[in-house]
Design a protein around this nucleic acid. Structure first.
Lengths: 167, 167
DNA sequence: CAGAATAAGTCAACAAGACTGCCGTAATCC
DNA sequence: GGATTACGGCAGTCTTGTTGACTTATTCTG
């Protein structure tokens, strides 16, 4: 207002900039989940099944409580989904060697096929976006998203999962 | 495998890279919605109320069908949420001047207060992440997310909303 | 101007996926 | 041997999404 020629108000820009970020998250997440959701609904599953199958595939031998920590839902919510996945032969359970109370989760062949099918749509979406945006933009994307998520889980995305040593 | 000294397998890296992106989306969205969700639950509202209030605040005078296009949900789902928001005095409706079938939506004072309170948590999260990441990273973040979302909605995030001319 | 199309809303029924609270069992830790 | 932990089950509730069918008011169109 003091000087209309000096360019847009930096406070307004900042507000605009932040709202744009919020909206980008909304639209991107909305579209990023739409394709898998459709496949899932064909077989009577929902998004929760995808999440479980995804992370079990990502961390073979993961325990129920580790999965709960990642998903940030209650045991009861997970157990319903997990029960179906085990029942229908997508996921196998076996007792932990060191701690036999644990039920280590792994994908069965059927589960691997489903996980691939679901995640492929998302992988393709990312591959296309990454290709168009270029390596530098991708680095920025990662930096910002890591700043948005809670720090406690950074360890999970910063290094690829190793074999957990459980057997 | 052919030459272990030649550095990591580019195909593996690519797979790892894409999975990391998928997981970043999951974690960031999970944490980005957690704070508003908690506030909402105090007043008996859910995430759907936040979304409606957010976009009505963003596009004052928006029509129901425009809101439906943004949210990508059914009329019935929206109308339940909208009904409560109008009933409780968060949102006002008025007939469109050009087309009197339309009910143009706007935030009442109560709605503006709530929207501010909810979105503030997300704005702060973004402000912190943007500040830490720097302008270049932010540009990359935007480029990638715009590549992930469907193109049809790009217009909505590329320019700030103008006054729609309805009155 | 009559009929089709559109904007919005309504009722009913249903399902997924979250939640709380409580209880049980087996294994481990101290 | 008693507390804790890992996991599972049951019951009930809520939000938010869905489909399908129908109504009303208004606008558009041939």
């Amino acid at each position: 207002m003091a000087d209309p020629k000096s360019g847009p108000n930096p406070l307004f820009l900042r507000e605009e900039e932040l709202r744009q970020g919020i909206e980008l998250m909304f639209y991107a997440y909305r579209d990023f989940t739409a394709e898998p959701d459709e496949i899932l609904s064909e077989i009577g599953f929902g998004r929760a099944h995808h999440r479980a199958v995804y992370f079990i595939g990502r961390y073979p031998g993961i325990t129920v409580s580790e999965l709960l920590e990642i998903l940030q839902i209650t045991k009861q919510s997970l157990s319903r989904v997990l029960g179906q996945l085990v029942q229908l032969g997508y996921v196998t359970q076996r007792p932990g060697a060191r701690d036999r109370r644990q039920r280590l989760l792994e994908l069965a062949e059927k589960g691997r096929v489903l996980e691939q099918r679901l995640t492929d749509t998302q992988r393709q979406r990312f591959a296309r976006a990454y290709r168009r945006a270029g390596a530098e933009a991708v680095a920025g994307f990662r930096t910002v998203l890591m700043g948005i998520m809670e720090e406690k889980d950074l360890k999970r995305v910063q290094r690829p999962p190793e074999d957990s040593g459980r057997k």
